[in-house]
Simulated scan of single mutants.
Amino acid sequence: MTTPFPDHDAEPTRMQVRIRYSHLGVLAALSPAYFGMVMATGIVSLAANQLAMTTLAHGLFWLNIVLYGVLWVLTVVRAIRYPRLFFGDMFDHLQGWGFFTSVAASGILGTQFVVLARNDAVAWVLWVTAVVLWIGLTYIIFTALFIKTHKPALKRGINGGWLLAVVAAQSIAALSVLLADHLGHPYKLEMNFFALSMWLWGGMLYIWMVSLIFYRDTFFRFAPDDLVPPYWINMGAMAISSLVGALLIINAPGAPYLASLLPFIKGFTIFYWATGTWWIPLLVVLELWRHVYKHFPVQYDALYWGAVFPLGMYAASTYQMDVAMGFGFMAIVGRIFLYMALVAWVTTFLAWLVKLWRWLCVRSVGQQQK
């Protein structure tokens, strides 16, 4: 499979990618990470439901169903009309990780169907979709990146977006735990074991990837345009990992081997949450450095959904961990971050609507001139 760019060490930046694709139209330039919109909307909906904002939670749930369906239609059409660009993105170090948003979006929407709609049938369909996508994308993308003859230097080829592969695995683990709670034995036991395995695999993958990301950011030049919004996934990947840990703790009474592992699960759940918490002040300082000190312009990009999602996930995971551990003092933290996530979601959604409106206006003018 050929790629739209020469396969050499100096791969193009995201801006160059967007410019290269723009002359073919919006569909050709559609980011594979656009399912991040579904991820962000879904987790804000679930966090709102935890804090008894049921009307908001259900409103975002129905919106998410529409967004998920539209994005799949656009993705399939893009793959058919522009296969070279589509698969070129999949095998690209800077773009390939975006495809994992489709896995996470399926898992999170499935979780919404379980929690908000009490509809396990649709949730199972989304679970199968997520698992099939995860298997295919994980082994196709990573195999392609392993065997590529020419690869970018580390400083150009990796960023926080790679951790979406971790989020994808953990979203499946979270949905698996919830579905397991509605199963009888022996399937309940097996589903919980699958969820535990995905949880541990995602944690190990995080350790591998974040080590490279930390090394890259510490020992190579870090420019404002290097701080892409998905760097917030550094925190978000740990937040969803702590959420799954909390769900496993709650499920322990129905799975004896989980009960025997409770000290281990509780320890790693707090470890994941603490690691995610550590990232927050650093990411805030880096954003201030980028936009205030370096005057980097703020304009809508699909990748900003990758910054909204971690805020919502941190809110949901903190609240769920507080319940699972019986702490009783962390719920306020979850509420604060939910409000922050809501502000971020509304801002990003309005920016997307403005961009969509401008595109429609330009297209309308172009058709009139013809």
Rank of each mutant, 00 (worst) to 15 (best):
L248P: 00
F264R: 07
R156A: 14
V114C: 12
M209C: 05
A79I: 04
W134C: 14
L56H: 00
S242T: 02
L303S: 15
G88Y: 06
A104N: 04
I172A: 11
H295C: 13
N251E: 12
P281S: 05
I250Q: 15
H23E: 11
S31T: 10
W127K: 04
S176E: 08
L283K: 06
Y187V: 10
L175T: 00
Y304N: 01
A10T: 13
F327C: 15
R358Q: 15
S45N: 06
W97P: 07
L51M: 10
T143A: 09
A351K: 10
P281N: 01
T41S: 15
K151F: 05
V166C: 12
T149V: 12
L133Y: 02
S317D: 06
I19R: 08
V346E: 07
I270K: 12
L74Q: 10
L350E: 09
L71G: 03
M204R: 13
I80R: 13
W273K: 01
L243H: 08
W357H: 09
S45A: 07
T75V: 02
F264K: 11
S106W: 06
G366Q: 14
F113P: 06
V128N: 05
M53A: 15
I280W: 11
R14N: 11
E287F: 07
I265M: 02
F91I: 11
L261W: 06
F222H: 06
W352C: 14
L282E: 07
V210H: 05
I19Y: 11
L85V: 14
M330W: 15
A105L: 03
G312C: 02
V292N: 08
I135S: 06
L212K: 07
V131D: 02
Y206C: 02
F309K: 03
F329P: 05
K355S: 15
E190Q: 08
P12T: 09
S197V: 13
A316G: 08
A351H: 08
V128I: 14
S106L: 03
G157F: 01
A237I: 02
A168M: 03
N234L: 13
T138E: 13
G69K: 08
P152Q: 00
V115R: 03
Y231M: 13
I19L: 10
M321C: 06
F309V: 03
T275E: 07
P230V: 00
F329N: 11
R18H: 10
F91H: 11
V103Q: 03
F193Y: 09
V38I: 08
L282A: 14
P310W: 00
I135D: 02
G69M: 04
T277C: 12
L179I: 08
I233K: 02
T143F: 12
L126I: 09
F264M: 15
F219G: 08
A259L: 15
I19P: 02
F296S: 14
I240D: 06
R78M: 05
V114F: 05
S176F: 00
A48V: 13
M330E: 08
V132L: 12
L56D: 07
A117I: 03
Y231S: 02
F142A: 09
A105T: 05
